[in-house]
Design a protein around this nucleic acid. Structure first.
Lengths: 205, 205
DNA sequence: CGATTTTTTGAGTGCTCGCTATAGAATCGG
DNA sequence: CCGATTCTATAGCGAGCACTCAAAAAATCG
């Protein structure tokens, strides 16, 4: 058999350490979380970190991957599972209020808030997160266009503009969460935002 | 005469240098703008900076003061000059779209974006900006309450919730501006947001 | 002028940053 | 058991951080 790992086994659980790093980046952001912060949070020394995860940027990229999969899935689910564009976007905003204020997690969204302040040296990381936010706008717009095609919304609906509005509200909610806003407060923001949703094609059918 | 300044005169204009520092902080944020960045932008050496402005935090505080006075005044003007709460909030959002995308300035709002990512050492600075954002929410809410008292809005209007919605949209617009959104796009976001504004007390009077 | 006051300049403080060389510890196959 | 392999721990690398000391320079005073 050649399946056995040769050499000294790792003394920590990689996934657990990765989750600790995720929390640290989520809470304090990319650039303001130092390697010392990470090693303390992960309970390992610097060389172990570098051996297991590569450098800081690579670790962050893996963190973002895990974050999107584990904590960002609600957006895609809402957009695909709801019958109408209005239900879909409304559910995203309502669930964002819940996700951004989940007890035991850092408030707000990592993709939105982790690299707002970035020195030129971290421009690539900041750009990657920005690209993900833009991809998000496109996902909203695509779902809205489907709704227009289905006759839920007027033909002249500006899907991209509506998508950008929803995204703005979501990003504002994330910052509000970081500023201490509670779940009910964010749910009220989401509900208010949905009052801006256009009426059906024939007035109020 | 004892009016003349004794000693060697300053070789730079203090206000000009302060404005350069303002731009640097506005563009890159508090923590991610180094003293070296500042001295380069301001065109002076470190000891001159410290003699004229104190340490980095004190300089930033003065920058914020100037910023609010010079670039943040549109909010207070809109809230006091417009006849109705709806006109006031609508004008704030519309003008935010303009202010956040003014050519020749960094996009977005310094108070919203300069200290999103802050290490524990900068917690006080981040907290000061957060307090200003909260003060902003209260200013919105106060204007909305005046509108309710004037009979423009239903008696049961949740002024604070509506204020938080407007603030969320504004903060989202600021981040969108930093992500590259143009003026027209932000104006569309503002216009969409205002569709959520409640109707008058008697339906649509 | 000479004395005084203030700023500029250039170098340099201790500290933390991201990252790594090296040596020792733990496990494998044989 | 041995040697090979892989991980861990200490210690430290150069660079950049916020900040400052000491001396030269430039102005006003009598």
């Amino acid at each position: 058999m050649t399946t056995g790992q040769r050499g000294r086994p790792r003394s920590f659980d990689r996934d657990t350490a990765l989750e600790k790093a995720l929390r640290a980046f989520w809470e304090h952001g990319y650039e303001t979380t130092s390697i010392a912060d990470l090693t303390r949070a992960m309970g390992i020394a610097a060389p172990s970190l570098y051996a297991a995860f590569g450098d800081k940027r690579t670790l962050f990229e893996e963190v973002v991957e895990v974050y999107v999969r584990r904590y960002g899935g609600f957006i895609g689910r809402a957009l695909t599972e709801e019958p109408t564009a209005r239900d879909a976007v409304g559910r995203v905003l309502r669930e964002a209020a819940v996700e951004y204020t989940e007890p035991g997690r850092p408030p707000g969204c990592l993709v939105i808030n982790a690299a707002v302040n970035a020195a030129p040296a971290s421009a690539e990381v900041a750009g990657a997160l920005r690209a993900m936010r833009e991809e998000n706008v496109r996902a909203f717009a695509s779902r809205i266009r489907t709704g227009v095609a289905a006759g839920e919304l007027p033909e002249d609906t500006d899907a991209l503009a509506l998508a950008r509005f929803a995204t703005s509200v979501m990003q504002g909610m994330s910052q509000q969460a970081r500023d201490g806003a509670g779940r009910e407060e964010l749910e009220a923001v989401a509900a208010t935002a949905m009052r801006a949703w256009p009426e059906g094609p024939g007035g109020t059918p």
